[in-house]
Design a protein around this nucleic acid. Structure first.
Lengths: 248, 248
DNA sequence: TCAGAACCTTGATCGAAGTCAAACTAGTAG
DNA sequence: CTACTAGTTTGACTTCGATCAAGGTTCTGA
């Protein structure tokens, strides 16, 4: 599916997370009005491609609900995920006309889009939007560097444990539960998507998950529903510093 | 070596690349004056550590000359390079008090530093500095994602070829030579540093360089001086799309 | 001019993860 | 109810890069 001119579908945006994350927090009423005028929602089903690398991209967006992935594919089909987009994450780059990565919905997905040109204009007139975007981009860069350590130096088992910790943390932040709550969540990714994330094959992912289950580090009901009986134990499996911090 | 309060050594900054890259291009004379007042140079010898992860960091900086690396180390000593800093690259993060990575000079190195607090103040008052920094950060994020593909999916041989292309490109950009010039450069990294960049061991790096040499993809004089007889041939070894673009 | 250190190369062997193949599970469309 | 599909697991075997070990090169400083 190729998006060249996304349709404008104006709907109410009261819950749009971009309000909290990139823009609006310090916006004047007149700026909010402008944002409303360039805003529209788009929804996708699980598995749908939001945009292909190389396509023209006339919007930037924020994930409202669901999960999307950014990935790169080599000529011969090898693919590597380079970004995991959870609710409130930002997609697209001001000033870039053409998408640099494939964006794929891994669950059903709703995004709050802003037409790019007017958004760029507003950014120039409203410095704090750019400042917020800079903070978010620096956070993403830190996450990417953490990910590079994972890809370059961790064992398959450590990679799986790290991914589980990342998902558990983001899930907890989203649900606003605290550290003491029992840690239970559903894996939002297939084994293949996990493999693309971690630079492994899906067979290795499957084997390592089975091993963590056999060793009692995780409890699985079905193939996706995970319980972590002892979060510190899981943390210990990641290879990261012990002071990597608590769940949230 | 731990830097907590870097000494202020004011010198002239006519050649400081930050003028071109992050600030100054659109600065008013009064802003330039302010920048001068918060600026100082620091020099390091090859092998010296500029700052350790976890140290207090009271400055942001731009590389003027030489090469530095950002790297992360796991408890057991496994290390992964997460950034390669060449002249005009920016180090540090506005708003961050504590360094997140080790910064190490791999050649003799000169940096143009700005005291962080006043720099942050200037950034708030001067939006275009933040805008420039956002662009540079987005570029770095793209580079990090390219690097993730390399770490996660490329073979050792492809990794080495990719690194050679990256160095050749940045070297050419720095020297302002054009595509048709014969491609000759010195490797600025030891085999071990290359291994840390690529998520390999130094032995594998050495073996793959020998293999590329044996196959005529590169010509080596000594251990560091590289000639690329056929750049397209080298590009073909990277596994990247053929349309990965020319030297510059 | 020699000793030592840092850096690099090469060989032999090993093991973690990849590949290929088969079978299992759960959901769903007919 | 059955057949199909997408997703997953498990087994057997292979391979790429790691590990361990020895020796070579270059440079510096005594």
């Amino acid at each position: 599916m190729v998006l060249t001119e996304p349709p404008l579908t104006q709907t109410d945006c009261a819950e749009c997370p971009i309000r909290h994350r990139a823009v609006c927090a310090r916006c004047e009423p007149t700026e909010l009005e402008q944002l409303e005028s360039m805003k529209y929602y788009r929804s996708f089903e699980a598995g749908q491609t939001v945009i292909w690398s190389g396509d023209r991209m006339d919007f930037v967006a924020s994930v409202v609900e669901g999960i999307a992935t950014l990935s790169q594919t080599m000529e011969d089909g090898r693919t590597q995920m380079v970004g995991l987009l959870l609710p409130s994450d930002f997609v697209g780059r001001p000033g870039r006309e053409v998408a640099a990565y494939d964006v794929i919905a891994t669950t059903s997905l709703t995004m709050c889009c802003f037409r790019r040109k007017p958004f760029e204009g507003l950014m120039i007139k409203t410095p704090h939007i750019g400042q917020r975007l800079l903070e978010m981009t620096l956070d993403e860069l830190d996450a990417a560097r953490e990910w590079m350590l994972l890809l370059g130096r961790k064992t398959a088992r450590e990679k799986i444990a790290s991914l589980l910790v990342i998902i558990a943390r983001r899930d907890a932040a989203l649900k606003q539960v605290n550290t003491t709550t029992r840690i239970v969540f559903d894996l939002p990714l297939t084994r293949e998507a996990m493999a693309d994330y971690l630079g492994l094959t899906l067979e290795t992912v499957s084997r390592q998950i089975s091993a963590l289950k056999r060793d009692g580090v995780i409890v699985l009901e079905g193939k996706r529903h995970v319980t972590i009986p002892d979060f510190d134990r899981l943390l210990g499996e990641t290879g990261d510093d012990a002071d990597g911090g608590p769940l949230i």
